[in-house]
Amino acid sequence: MTEQTADSGHGGFSMHRVTERIGIHNISLLVALVGLLVIFGVLRGDVFFSTRNLLNIGMGVAILGVLAISQTGVIVSGGLDISVGSIVGLTTVATAMAIQATDMAGVGLLAGIVVGGLAGLVNGLLITYGRINAVIVTLGTMAIFRGIAFILSNGQSISIFNDAFRWIGTGRILGLPAPLWILVAVAIGFYVFMHKSIVGRNYYAIGGNAIVARLSGLNIPSYRVAIYVVSGIMAGVGGIMLAARTGSGQPISGSDGLELEAITAAFLGGCAMQGGRGTVVGALLGVAIIGVLNNGMILTAVPTFYQMLAKGTLLILAVFLAEYRLNKS
């Protein structure tokens, strides 16, 4: 006999149902987040919970959030994209150059998205049809895209004076900064795509077991290429956000460990190294933890060098915990 739980799902409200709904993993992330809030609240309660500081945290993680969410998609498919930081840098330059040439915000947006998408396409084609390991390909293109950004800009910062474009980084809607709204839109879009659409669910199959996916009739190469294009476009969106906020295109942008933080957030959020597992909500919680940690460490005057130490440790710990959980199950 098969019992159906579909009916029981609509039944009474119970703690058990709530845990099941949110997921054990996300609950532990929430606990960790609350723990951090308590620690920094106790240490610097005067500043930490001020509206200004909380908005600061939000602004700080908006770009990271976009990258962590698309990184989750890549990791679920069984890949990894460590070139995203460089694509951000490249797209800030492309966007700034486009706006300098035309003084049109729309052209700047288009330039960022197209250049990001092309960069992702290069990654995807090399990984899928060149049959080169994703880590190696994106490690190589990480240097290549950064190099192109320097060549295009001649190593100089390119200023952006277009106000409409600057609004993307500095404007507010309902009191919240525009970058946060972009993050919300990307998160909702990806949530629906990854968890509700057939195509998104197929990525879980491909990352979970490529042989099973192929024997189920999925065209794996085109899925693989597409996810890197998406990752490139999202890095382009990140580049647009950064260029709009700083009012400039800088080849050095995004080189301060943005990919490290994005990958850390994805693994904190429950991604499995070999693919097939990971959620958008988890990635957002991972991003929140990193944002609070970054902000708290600055407020409590942890020296920069030690902050780097903490971030690296967090990535290794996140992957260790993810693998440990997987082996246990």
Binding site: K196, A205, N209, S216
Partner: peptide, 29 residues
Amino acid sequence: KEEALLLMQTILENAVLCVPQKVSSGGFF
């Protein structure tokens, strides 16, 4: 285990793997 089943997923998800057109509307599950 290696060629037929997605071990990280549920019974239902495994069962509908080859019939996306029957378990979706407008591309959504």
